[in-house]
Design a protein around this nucleic acid. Structure first.
Lengths: 126, 126
DNA sequence: CCAACCTTGACACAGCTTTGATAAGGTTGT
DNA sequence: ACAACCTTATCAAAGCTGTGTCAAGGTTGG
């Protein structure tokens, strides 16, 4: 059939056998195995190995980045947490007039000390 | 309307000033600046800095991972390319329940459509 | 039964990431 | 005016990534 060994798959895809094992280890492409444990690369895996090279080359990303994207896709708790962190708009202090600012500056140290001594975690995000 | 300097923000969030600059450099949290260039951390940014710490701690990810997720979110061409590569994944998540799998399949189609409508269609590589 | 594959594991090394420390210089409050 | 901040830039060290190579041993096919 059309299952290639690791060296053959490496030759036809441009990776090295070493890198095919690495790619498998980080969860990106996990080929089937024979009874005795030999990796078998099928047509689909060869295709994915080639497009993986293109993906990395065209977008300046690394294997670890793709692995993280895969992890995001598989772990909904993770992707939800990351997404909600990213979605929180970075609300900046709006530009303020000079004397308002001055008043704030005069009180800020007291405010910091208050925040530190009360040690109150403001968990409620707006 | 609150804004702390970098050292104050570091104290209240548990980061170091060095790390706040690094977090800014990788695009995660970019505080406003005063006229003379001082960073101003507002309440929203302080909150995000704290939740960022939680995010990293609870999910065993790094700042680089969050930065990549942000890049995915901002670069539709990139996220489309990564998503379609991941879509072609041959192995199925057997560890999830049937309706989780179904929901995933449904979301997958939505993601593909979103990627295709915001970008050029991907050609079939040969 | 032997050559030529395959397996895992380990050592190694360049380069990048993450983080700290320090320097040279500008800003600000008192 | 001076202390105590801030800025950027640079050097440095620890750790991770990506990759090669080698060793010890199992599998396969003529």
């Amino acid at each position: 059939m059309e299952a290639l060994t690791i060296h053959e798959a490496a030759q036809t895809t441009g990776w090295t056998p070493r890198m095919l094992r690495y790619i498998e280890r980080i969860g990106l492409i996990e080929p089937a195995r024979t009874e005795s444990g030999y990796r078998q690369y099928g047509a689909g895996e060869l295709q994915r190995l080639r497009t993986l090279r293109e993906l990395l080359a065209e977008h300046e990303i690394g294997l670890g980045d793709v692995a993280f994207a895969l992890r995001l896709r598989r772990d909904e708790a993770l992707s939800g947490a990351v997404d909600s962190w990213l979605e929180a708009e970075p609300q900046r202090p709006e530009a303020v007039s000079a004397d308002e600012w001055l008043r704030w500056e005069q009180e800020k140290h007291a405010r910091i000390i208050a925040a530190l001594t009360t040690n109150e975690p403001m968990e409620t995000a707006a």
